[in-house]
C-alpha cells in the first residue's frame, strides 16, 4: 500500500477536489491517501510519501520551506496544475513590486506589524515549484484532465516516470480556420457585436485566443472546454512549449496573422497563467500597461 499526498501551497484548492472524482476514489480505497488540508490531516510520526502531488505556486517563506521539506520526504514529486508548473494566476502579482501590492490593500504601518507578529511575508516573487526543487512530473492544467492524473499516479506507483507531450488547444478546436487574414486589430470579447460567433477561429475574427500557445490539458482528444462553451482560450492549460515564454510566442502568432498586438489593452493577460520563471516582471510606472 503506497502513501500518496495531495497538497496545496498558494492555490485555490481546485486541484485537490480532483481527489473527490470517482475515478480517484478507488485510489483512496487501495492506498493511503492524504488530501491536505481540504479533506484529511497528514499521518502522525515521521512520515514520508511515495508520491506527493503538490499544487499551487510558492507565495511566501513558509511555502518555500515546506516545499523543500516535502521534496526531501517524497520519492516522486508531481507539480499538479498550472500554478505549480508555471505560477498560474497567483503569479500575476509579479507585475507589481511586493511593497506596492501590499500597501494598496493595507496601511503602510501594517508591514512592520506583520513582521512583529510573525506572519509570513510574501516572497518578492511568486515562483513555480521547479524554480526551487526537482520536479519529477509537471502536470499543467486548471485542473488537468483526470486521465492525466490517473496515468501519472499509476505509472509512478510502478516506478516509471510518465512523459507527456501535449498538443496545442487548436488541435481539437471545433471552429473553422479559413486562412483569410483580413483582421488587423484585436477587439474586445463582447456579446452581440462579436457573439454569437460565426463558427470560425476566434483569432481570425480578431478576438484574442491563446489556443495556439496553450497546451491542451483540459481534455484528452475532445474539443477544448472553453471553445466548446463558445469562449476563447485564456491559457489555463499552461504553455504548449513548457520552457517557452508564451508572451513571445503569442505576439509572434499575432504578427504572423498580421494583427497589431498593440491593439490589445491588457498584455499581462497573455501571461495570466504563466507569470513565474521571470516571465512577468514589475512594471516601472504605476499606470504603465
Amino acid at each position: 500500500m503506497a502513501k500518496l499526498l495531495f497538497y496545496a501551497l498558494g492555490a485555490c484548492g481546485g486541484c485537490e477536489l480532483l481527489a473527490l472524482e470517482q475515478e480517484l476514489v478507488s485510489l483512496l480505497e487501495d492506498h493511503e491517501v492524504y488530501v491536505y488540508p481540504l479533506l484529511s490531516s497528514p499521518p502522525g510520526g515521521s512520515f514520508s510519501f511515495d508520491i506527493a502531488l503538490i499544487s499551487g505556486a510558492v507565495l511566501n517563506q513558509e511555502h518555500q520551506e515546506f516545499l523543500r521539506d516535502l521534496r526531501a520526504r517524497s520519492r516522486f514529486l508531481v507539480a499538479l496544475g498550472t500554478c505549480a508548473t508555471h505560477g498560474g494566476i497567483p503569479a500575476l502579482v509579479n507585475e507589481r513590486r511586493p511593497e506596492e501590492r501590499f500597501e494598496e490593500v493595507y496601511p503602510t504601518s501594517f508591514r512592520q506589524e506583520v513582521l512583529k507578529e510573525g506572519l509570513p511575508l510574501p516572497l518578492p516573487y511568486v515562483k513555480a515549484l521547479d524554480e526551487l526543487v526537482k520536479v519529477d512530473v509537471a502536470l499543467p492544467g486548471c485542473p488537468p484532465d483526470i486521465s492525466y492524473v490517473l496515468k501519472t499516479t499509476q505509472d509512478l506507483l510502478k516506478g516509471t516516470i510518465p512523459k507527456f507531450r501535449w498538443p496545442s488547444v487548436c488541435e481539437t478546436c471545433p471552429y473553422e480556420r479559413t486562412g483569410k487574414r483580413n483582421v488587423r486589430r484585436l477587439h474586445r470579447l463582447l456579446a452581440g457585436r462579436d457573439h454569437p460567433l460565426k463558427e470560425r477561429c476566434f483569432l481570425e475574427q480578431g478576438i484574442l485566443c491563446l489556443g495556439p500557445v496553450t497546451a491542451l490539458t483540459c481534455v484528452q482528444g475532445e474539443p477544448p472546454l472553453c471553445l466548446a462553451a463558445h469562449m476563447p482560450c485564456r491559457g489555463c492549460g499552461g504553455p504548449v512549449r513548457a520552457k517557452a515564454n508564451p508572451m513571445l510566442d503569442m505576439l509572434n502568432a499575432l504578427v504572423g496573422n498580421r494583427i497589431d498586438w498593440r491593439s490589445w489593452p491588457d498584455r499581462k493577460l497573455i501571461l495570466a497563467f504563466a507569470g513565474a520563471h521571470g516571465h512577468l516582471r514589475p512594471l516601472k510606472g504605476p499606470q504603465c500597461r
Binding site: G14, L17, L92, R96, R101, P143, D266, L269, A272
Partner: peptide
C-alpha cells in the same frame, strides 16, 4: 496574502469573471 484587487486593475471588465473565479477552487 495575495491581493487580487491589485492585479485586476488594468483588466478589461469582461475578462474579470473568468479571472476572479480562480480566487477559490471550491
Amino acid at each position: 496574502f495575495r491581493g487580487y484587487e491589485r492585479f485586476l486593475v488594468g483588466m478589461p471588465m469582461e475578462e474579470v469573471p473568468r479571472t476572479v473565479s480562480t480566487i477559490c477552487g471550491v
